[in-house]
Design a protein around this nucleic acid. Structure first.
Length: 688
RNA sequence: GGCGAUGUAGCUCAGUCGGUUAGAGCAACGGCUUCAUAAGCCGUGUGUCGGUGGUUCGAGUCCACUCAUCGCUACCA
């Protein structure tokens, strides 16, 4: 049973950064899905837009000294250029900062109000008096209130994992201005998601709208208890839409972003004389969202809740994919593996990446790995060596003859390939592109074996075999064309090239079911080049440290900015910027003492902690818990001198009272480096 | 810390409802071929299916525990 219409979206890229290879997993995956549906004759549109609102955009525009609208316009142009370069063919690409979006937000908001889903409450939040804005978690840094690790963000601690609110941080600092934030209270508006709980239970757990593991995740983690209210407003200043019935408040970017799916569709409708209701309020329309697993919560709970409450259609399916790693590691700017779309296109053919991703993408949430060696090998072997080679080794023989008038006997090869079409289509339909590619390559193998067995190069030499030569080449070129049809959703350029070669455009999946006869054959030209490993290398090299992380704005004391060269983004100074200037008196408040570790004990239940008993000389001892379990053995610790913060307020921890802090450098985990003192120092001596 | 996953050949991955001797591609090795972009064809696999224990006539598959790896973590569980 197929519906009349199909609406497909990919997540809206945020206007604060450029598209990179990680983003492209999603846009390519979605594009393949849409192209497949269209090839199959479905009425299908691919809708996307730039996500433009929020504090980050406001701050960045301020730093760049220009209006937000200018910033987001530039970024949108860049995004659309990148997508076009990868043959990602949106039917419409809009922006969340559009009048259509504002109107829809108002409409949805009114419905939520009307149903009593909105409540108001005061929220105490940190406010940056210099930048004049409230501070989101990520814009506050300070010392973790639990483990006392410095330089942690306002939401949770990367060292001990504790979660807290920004106002719990010790000595919080605004990363925008370096100022000390103050607490301010402001009215916020909340969606009472719990009221939609019964609906969400049903929608997520039945009807097959989600991958199983996603449904399980939601059930196990969110749906087993009351759903939290969702804070959907932000006080001014904010770059976004003002909430009509709540002066001084704006919709949080995450409120209006998904509405952008509808708004962008609306824009498309206006351009094509279509009715929005046919696409968003009609059971004859399927809606498919493609997203990454990081934003699963919004698309599987909040968004369906909002759609339900405001009378729009619910997604037929939310397809969630994993992340991209490069050579098994998280993309890294310093290693050059965070490659921008634009940089890739300077060096390599977009078809390579489309095919490589297709060959790795399955229907599940697994992360996919871009293995650079495999990347080249796969393209060379599958596409150049197997598929394109079919044309390459036969087309020249029939340039003057064209294809046979009648499709010759081929031992059932074409028919078998045609029959495989339904399995391939099924794999595409299930977003199991990896399986589809495997099935297609099996056909390519069979076709190459046919070339081997019929040996057209031998036939060519025998004047009596010219008819047979034409027959054999007609078979091979038809098998090649069949493969191109199956690959067309992934490789539109190859399909076009095939159309030019055989002088018959590939328009439909059905083209795979009937052989082509009697057409002439164009002069053969290479349809795809082998991967030049040098270019891959060059792309990686040029991606290293391309964009230094934006340094906090100009209100940072000048002394901070004296470094001659900007440190690489992964370098320590960049990861943890210098704290604001403190006075000698400030420093004197911290009493650092030399201490000797007299006992180091295992804390079996603790993952990171070691219990240390340290001597400050004489019989003064302190018990200190230190998060260095992964970096030091007990033997290494016992007897050595360390530097401790001796006047730190004692902290009750899970395993006992910690009466100080051992000083160390490094990011944590196994990379912790205790401070030592040169020999001669005595326990109890103060560090000045 | 919480949660979600993953672990099968050198690499990337299939493996349905538990059912013979666990598969494919790539890589490697041997042979053939020379039309083709150093492409193609044929052949070659002694894998503690991460580990331990359990259920079963039978476990890669189900259960428990465990180790390792990865990811997510909202104004936050």
């Amino acid at each position: 049973m197929t519906t009349k219409r199909m609406l497909v979206t990919a997540a809206l890229p945020y206007a604060n950064g450029h598209i990179h290879l990680g983003h492209l997993v999603e846009y390519i995956q979605t594009d393949i899905f849409v192209r497949f549906q269209k090839l199959r004759g479905r009425r299908c549109i691919y809708i996307c837009a730039d996500d433009t609102h929020g504090t980050a955009i406001m701050i960045r525009a301020r730093q760049e000294g220009r209006p937000e609208t200018e910033l987001i316009a530039d970024m949108q142009a860049a995004h659309q250029r990148d997508f076009a370069g990868f043959d990602i063919a949106f039917d419409h690409y809009g922006s969340t900062n559009a009048p259509e979006n504002y109107e829809l937000c108002k409409e949805i908001w009114a419905k939520l109000r009307h149903q009593g889903l909105i409540r108001e409450a005061d929220v105490e939040q940190l406010f940056d008096p210099v930048a004049g804005t409230f501070l989101a978690d990520r814009f506050v840094k300070g010392t973790c209130p639990v483990c006392k690790s410095p330089g942690e963000y306002g939401d949770n601690c990367s060292k001990c994992g504790a979660t807290y609110s920004p106002s719990d941080l010790i000595d919080p600092v605004s990363t925008l201005s370096g100022a000390t934030p103050e607490k301010r209270s402001a009215q916020h508006l909340f969606v009472q998601l719990e009221m939609l709980h019964p609906f969400l239970d049903t929608w997520t757990q039945s009807g097959n709208h989600l991958q199983d593991e996603v449904a399980n995740y939601l059930k196990g983690h969110f749906l087993g208890k009351p759903l939290r209210d969702w804070d959907v407003s932000r006080p001014e200043p904010y770059f976004g839409f003002a909430i009509p019935d709540s002066p001084g408040n704006y919709w949080y970017v995450w409120f209006d972003a998904p509405v952008g799916y509808i708004a962008s569709t609306h824009q498309w409708c206006k351009l094509h004389s279509e009715r929005l209701d046919d696409w968003w309020r009609n059971p004859e329309t399927e809606i498919h969202h493609f997203i990454g697993k990081d934003i699963a919560y919004f698309h599987t709970l909040f968004w369906p809740g909002v759609l339900h409450a405001s009378g729009f259609s619910l997604p037929t399916f939310v397809h969630i994919h994993g992340f991209l790693t490069v050579d098994r590691e998280k993309m890294s700017k310093s290693k050059g593996t965070q490659v921008s779309a634009a940089k890739y296109l300077e060096h390599l053919d977009p078809s390579y990446l489309r095919y490589y991703y297709a060959s790795k993408l399955g229907p599940r949430l697994d992360d996919i790995d871009l293995n650079l060696a495999e990347f080249a090998a796969k393209i060379d072997s599958d596409l150049v060596g197997k598929v394109v080679n079919l044309a390459s080794r036969t087309a020249r023989f029939v340039e003057s003859l064209g294809l046979a008038q009648e499709y010759p006997h081929d031992g059932g090869l074409f028919a078998a390939g045609a029959a495989a079409g339904s399995k391939i289509a099924e794999a595409y339909e299930q977003v199991d592109y990896a399986r589809a590619m495997r099935l297609i390559m099996e056909l390519a193998d069979a076709a190459n074996a046919y070339v081997e067995n019929t040996a057209p190069w031998t036939l060519k030499k025998d004047p009596n075999q010219q008819v047979r030569l034409q027959e054999v080449c007609s078979v091979v070129l038809n098998l090649f064309r069949q493969l191109c049809v199956y690959l067309a959703p992934v490789l539109p350029r190859l399909a076009d090239g095939c159309g030019r070669l055989l002088q018959s455009e590939i328009r439909s999946w059905q083209d795979s079911q009937t052989p082509l006869v009697g057409t002439s054959v164009s002069k053969f030209e290479h349809l795809m080049q082998r991967v030049d490993p040098g270019k891959v290398q060059q792309m990686i090299e040029e991606s290293k440290d391309q964009t230094p992380v934006t340094v906090p704005n100009a209100t940072v004391p000048a002394s901070v900015a004296v470094a001659e060269t900007t440190p690489a983004p992964d370098e320590p100074l960049q990861l943890e910027p210098l704290a604001p200037t403190c006075t000698i008196d400030d420093f004197a408040k911290v009493d650092l003492r030399v201490a000797r570790v007299i006992k180091a004990e295992e804390v079996p239940e603790a993952k990171k902690l070691v219990k240390l008993t340290v001597s400050l000389g004489g019989d003064v001892t302190r018990t200190v818990f230190a998060g260095i379990k992964a970096a030091y053995t007990l033997q290494q610790l016992e007897g050595r001198l360390v530097v401790i913060v001796a006047n730190l307020q004692p902290r009750q921890m899970k395993f006992g009272l910690s009466e100080g802090m051992v000083t160390a450098a490094g990011p944590g985990g196994t990379e912790v480096f205790l401070l030592g003192v040169d020999s001669g120092a005595k326990p109890g001596q103060r560090v000045h």
